[in-house]
């Protein structure tokens, strides 16, 4: 079973591969909520080969272009401790996403950034999704998105996944990054 899934994956990739977007981040930062906001109805759930960890895959459509979106299991660091983290890293390394969305909890910026640094270090294009902006505001805080973007050197999109705020900006950014540029082999 496991090998068959893999072969299918390879075959698909060999033909015309859809741009792939991976959603990564700590547990409980709104990754799954973002996944559903991006993909809508067409979702498949499967176990990652050889594990009991579930991985969600879905399609996102924006301006007539289709994207594959993968919801990676929660991870705290690139060094895996749990089975979930091991799977998340394997997807990062071997599924070759064209873009990684690092979803972070805006209230806990300092705790989230170590993983951002690790993702950027990997050399994959990263977009930081600054989620839970509403809770940040309620905590009496604000983040200067522009300054954060400059410090990190990658795009930062503020969102409230619960209400859908900022999701269209994010879709637009994904489109610009991946589809507006016909050369998708940025990573290969």
């Amino acid at each position: 079973m496991a090998t068959e899934t893999k072969r299918q994956g390879r075959a698909q990739r060999g033909t015309r591969r859809k741009p792939t977007v991976l959603i990564a981040g700590n547990p409980n930062v709104g990754k799954s909520m973002l996944f559903h906001k991006l993909t809508g109805r067409y979702v498949t759930v499967s176990n990652y080969p050889g594990t009991t960890v579930e991985v969600l895959r879905g399609q996102m459509r924006w301006r007539g272009q289709e994207f594959e979106v993968i919801d990676a299991p929660g991870m705290y660091s690139l060094i895996p401790i749990t089975e979930e983290e091991r799977v998340a890293r394997r997807i990062l390394l071997h599924d070759k996403p064209d873009l990684v969305l690092h979803v972070i909890d805006a209230k806990n910026l300092a705790r989230m950034l170590p993983l951002t640094a690790q993702l950027i270090e990997m050399g994959i294009p990263v977009v930081v999704v600054l989620n839970m902006m509403d809770e940040l505001e309620r905590a009496g805080l604000s983040i200067q998105v522009e300054a954060l973007q400059q410090q990190l050197g990658v795009p930062v999109v503020p969102t409230v996944c619960l209400t859908g705020q900022g999701i269209n900006n994010l879709k637009e950014l994904i489109y610009e990054r991946l589809a507006a540029n016909p050369d998708l082999s940025a990573r290969d």
């Binding site: 910026l109 300092a110 989230m112 950034l113 170590p114 951002t116 640094a117 805080l141 604000s142 200067q144």
Partner: peptide
């Protein structure tokens, strides 16, 4: 590094 950046870009409103 993270704490430094977070401190730089976060403001208490």
């Amino acid at each position: 590094w993270s704490q430094q950046i977070a401190a730089q870009v976060t403001q208490i409103t």
